[in-house]
Amino acid sequence: MEINWSAVLGIVFTPVIAFLVGVTYGGLTRRITARIQNRFGPPFYQNILDIIKLYSKESNINHGVMQHLGPVFAITASVTTLFFIPVIKDSPVFTNFSFNGDLIFLLYIMVFGSLGMALGAGQTGNPNSAIGVSRGLSQLVGYEVPFVMALVAIMVQFQTTSLNDLLAVQDHFTKWIIFQSPFAFLAAILAFLGMMGYAPFDVVIAPAEIASGPPSEFGGKYLGLMLTSRSIFTFAKLVLFTDIFLGGAHDFITLIIKTFILYMIPVLTGIVFPRFRTEQSIRFFWSWPLFFGILAILVVVF
């Protein structure tokens, strides 16, 4: 049997790169937030130090099997999501497992991480976790609807469900889907705000209100796993959006520029906004983003 060594290389290195980029983005976010609030802010590698510290905790309390498995599910979902997204366009190394029809598969697998976290949080028995999980799943229902609408519009417009085909369509920057189907982009980017969990949609992990919600009983390596998973998942989502709307990237520098610009949208929105309650955020997702999603489908169909 012949082994495709470039694919193996991609599988090894993609999660590492995703983690490093995601965690650096997280640190930069804290820095940017601090500068906007007229503070100096932590160094950009602060989140890496936090995660090393969490992994080096000497005692890790757990309340049962699911608390071990919850963070593992989350990180599995993040890495799996990442593997089915072509990170670099036309590269034999970083195309990974993306096959025809993977957009629908991604829609399923992206929810899996939240469910794993919900299961882990349910095991701890902390009431704050339960409240956080119920808020998180309600909000999930909120932003999934416009997101799916946007993706359906794109699938109908280009008659494909494959990310590779979508990438092949956008061979010139005038043909990027953000220009070809702007309403779908609007719906998807508004759903993306909710997906990233920054303010105004951070009611799930509201620290002053429900003591950081689902991970309130997680300490040490469990929290470290969750933060790692979050970093990788952030990068995966950014690459997915870049691939769908911004034409992907031929090299890492383009990828970093595009994902960073995309990442700044929820971050900068989050800094200036206060927090929505759960029903307010669902009402938001089901008004303008949903409207844009329906508009995108109508434009495509007629």
């Binding site: 601090a34 609030q37 503070r39 100096f40 932590p42 704050n128 620290p207 003591a211 950081s212 309130s216």
Partner: peptide, 22 residues
Amino acid sequence: MTSRYDAERFGIRGSATPRQAD
């Protein structure tokens, strides 16, 4: 914690629960 003295530049951050705290 806020902008005048900004303890976050030393990596000092508030945590929500004792499980996460140092």
